Amino acid sequence: MAEQQALRHIPVMLGEAVEGLAVQAGGRYLDGTFGRGGHARAVLSRLGPDGRLLLMDRDPQAIATAQAEFASDARVSIRHANFSSMAEWDETATGLDGILLDLGVSSPQLDEAARGFSFMADAPLDMRMDTTQGESAADFIAQADEREIADVLWTYGEERFSRKIARAIVEQRAEKPILRTGELAALIERVVGRREPGKHPATRSFQALRIRVNGELESLKQGLDAALERLNVGGRLSIISFHSLEDRVVKLFIRDHSGKVQGSRRGPPQAAKLARLAAVGKAQFPSDHELSVNPRSRSAVLRVAEKLA
């Protein structure tokens, strides 16, 4: 099953993301979102016998795939954890020459209905990337008050009908718990209707709940701070984002550590900051060919940065 999932999973912007790392044969690299290993295999193929590849993922199934394929390779170390905790791993203490993060939910997670990430099939309303801990999406909407649910849908999904949806959730759960993806998707469709051609009305809400349940933006911010500390001078950070909230965090992080003064003509002058990162080129997007082969790549944005002395 793991091999079949790995074959089905098409890594997004594979060549561009790995090129961004500028892999050295004897370098040390971290793939913080192993997924099904597409990017990791490409990095490993460029390493020599003295190279080192560290693999992390919060998804137990991803780690099982990594163990099955790479555990026997002396160049590889594997850790089941969120990439936000990379600085707590002793393997990173000596510094890294490159860190790759492929954010968001992976194709295998979407395609396995039982994980509850998608409204395309009826399944338990889970959405946890790490199924060994934390509250599920069903737990969250069962316990949160109406205002908190609305805030999550608006903040993380930019859902303009967030209040109406939250009110409907609270009313329905008073009669019967909402435990399955099909129930929630049907409720949202009843509330807002089919307002966007080609887009299911539950899309924004499901994204918002997934981000909230997994603490994705908080993990990203913590992971970026940890990455900056663990990168060697000249080391590269290669990050693929899939929605504007993620990309904005990455973009601002690189900008804020670039040493550029973000002042206002009307405000007082600001002192220059120490430059610790430099953007490598501009944001990159999937090619037309990749979009035709892998439509799920359509929202991907790649940003690369290098650590400065």
Rank of each mutant, 00 (worst) to 15 (best):
Glu3Lys: 07
Gln5Tyr: 11
Arg8Trp: 12
Leu14Arg: 11
Val23Trp: 08
Gly32His: 03
Gly38Lys: 04
Gly48Thr: 11
Arg52Leu: 06
Arg52Lys: 09
Arg58Gln: 15
Gln67Ile: 10
Val76Trp: 08
Ser77Gln: 14
Ala87Met: 06
Asp90Trp: 03
Leu96Phe: 03
Asp97Trp: 06
Leu103Ser: 10
Met120Thr: 13
Pro124Trp: 00
Gly134Leu: 08
Asp139Ala: 11
Gln143Asn: 13
Glu148Ile: 13
Glu159Asp: 04
Phe161Ile: 03
Arg163Lys: 15
Lys164Gln: 15
Ile165Pro: 02
Ile165His: 01
Ala166Met: 04
Ala166Cys: 04
Gln172Cys: 02
Arg173Glu: 12
Ile188Gln: 01
Val191Ile: 06
Val192Glu: 00
Arg194Ser: 09
Arg195Ala: 11
Arg204Met: 01
Arg210Phe: 05
Leu217Arg: 00
Glu218Ser: 14
Leu220Asp: 02
Gly223Cys: 10
Leu228Asp: 13
Leu228Lys: 08
Arg230Ile: 05
Asn232Ile: 02
Glu246Arg: 04
Ser258Cys: 05
Val261Gly: 03
Gln262Ser: 05
Ser264Arg: 07
Pro268Met: 02
Arg276Gly: 10
Leu277Lys: 01
Ala278Glu: 05
Ala283Glu: 13
Phe285Trp: 01
His289Asp: 10
Glu290Cys: 10
Leu291Met: 15
Leu291Ala: 05
Arg296Ile: 04
Ala300Arg: 01
Ala300Asn: 03
Arg303Ser: 06
Arg303His: 01
Glu306Pro: 00
